[in-house]
Design a binder for these strands. Structure first.
Length: 313
DNA sequence: TCTCACACCTTTGAAGTGG
DNA sequence: CCACTTCAAAGGTGTGAGA
């Protein structure tokens, strides 16, 4: 799998603006592409921050992958977890991040299982896979199964692809059959309030839920450079037609660094009252590469948002 | 550094409408 | 029935004051 970036004691507030980090990570013949790579890179250059709240906060940007190289009829479980990048606690000095202390111990055992899991390789490969429902919390006693992180620490998300229909009841994410993928540009600082104003502005610019804070109209803010790829847009969703798979029959457990959790329990923790059909991203439909065929194939395609958002995104 | 109420926004899905 | 529209509720945002 791809390597993590080397930890630095101080983190420049502005990284190189020349090149994007690679959108591709391969493992055992399986190729995973970070679909919204341009947006991740734009945030990464300013040192991405993700808000932690007691009740759980979504990530923005969130992780969205395109996968190829899976066996079509093999079933897989897709799992995300978030690991510390280093053993350091940071502080924001008004200009950049700097190391200030030893890290709090990482809280193990919390992962996010993609709600479509398990599904066939064919299924995972036919459209981008989004993890926008993953939530982060700073509540060590969080009852909702969200991923628990420490504020002012630095983290890197990981994607694990786990072959599913083995007879074994316990899956070890460090096991030999598990494929793990990381993308350095998805690294972030966990915070309870934004530190860097540039990050706040990027969130406001790109997250549709923060539209209320944008300065629209004639004057005001200088127009920012727009992301070149429409596939980087994210936030809105449309329904797709997917088959429901009853996870509760599998009885599979997930072993996260020694903590074994029944898959059934995790599923109910993370996705209570979720319909089996998953939601895909708006920009997925906006992307011309996907428009061909997808609209024909998907009777639930909803054009309402497309026209509405194209201008402002 | 963290939490909370808040205004503002998007998303969702039920109800309504017309063919 | 189906496709489409309308509308209100639910829920995702950053803010800013206060702890």
């Amino acid at each position: 799998s791809c390597g993590a970036p080397s930890p630095e004691k101080t983190v420049s507030s502005v990284k190189s603006t020349v090149d994007n980090l690679s959108a591709v990570c391969s493992c055992k013949g399986v190729r995973v592409t970070l679909d919204n790579n341009n947006m991740w890179n734009e945030f990464y250059r300013c040192n991405t921050e993700m808000i932690l709240t007691k009740q759980g906060r979504r990530m923005f940007p969130y992780c969205r992958f395109r996968i190829s190289g899976l066996e079509h009829f093999q079933r897989y479980i897709l799992v995300m977890d978030i690991n510390p990048v280093d053993n350091v606690r940071y502080k924001w000095n008004g200009q950049f991040w700097e190391a200030c202390d030893k890290a709090e111990p990482h809280i193990l055992g919390r992962v996010f299982i993609h709600p479509e899991s398990p599904s066939s390789g064919h299924y995972w490969m036919q459209q981008p896979v989004s993890f926008y429902k993953l939530k982060l919390t700073n509540n060590p006693l969080d009852p909702d199964g969200h991923i628990i992180l420490h504020s002012m620490h630095r983290y890197l998300p990981r994607l694990h692809i786990v072959p599913a229909d083995k007879t074994t009841e316990v899956i070890q994410l460090s096991g030999p059959e598990v494929m793990t993928f990381t993308f350095p540009q998805t690294e972030f600082f966990a915070v309870t309030a934004y530190q860097n104003l540039r990050i706040t502005q990027l969130k406001i610019d790109y997250n549709p839920f923060a539209k209320g804070f944008r300065e629209e109209g004639q004057c005001c803010r200088p127009s920012k450079p727009k992301l070149e790829s429409s596939s980087d847009l994210e936030g809105s969703e449309a329904k797709s037609v997917l088959s429901a798979i009853d996870l509760s029959k599998s009885g599979t457990k997930v072993n996260v660094d020694g903590v074994k959790l029944p898959l059934k329990t995790l599923k109910s923790l993370f996705h209570t009252n979720e319909p089996p059909d998953e939601l895909l991203d708006q920009e997925f439909f906006n992307n011309k590469d996907y428009d061909i065929g997808l609209m024909e194939n998907n009777p639930l395609f909803n054009t309402r948002h497309e026209t509405e958002n194209k201008s402002s995104w």
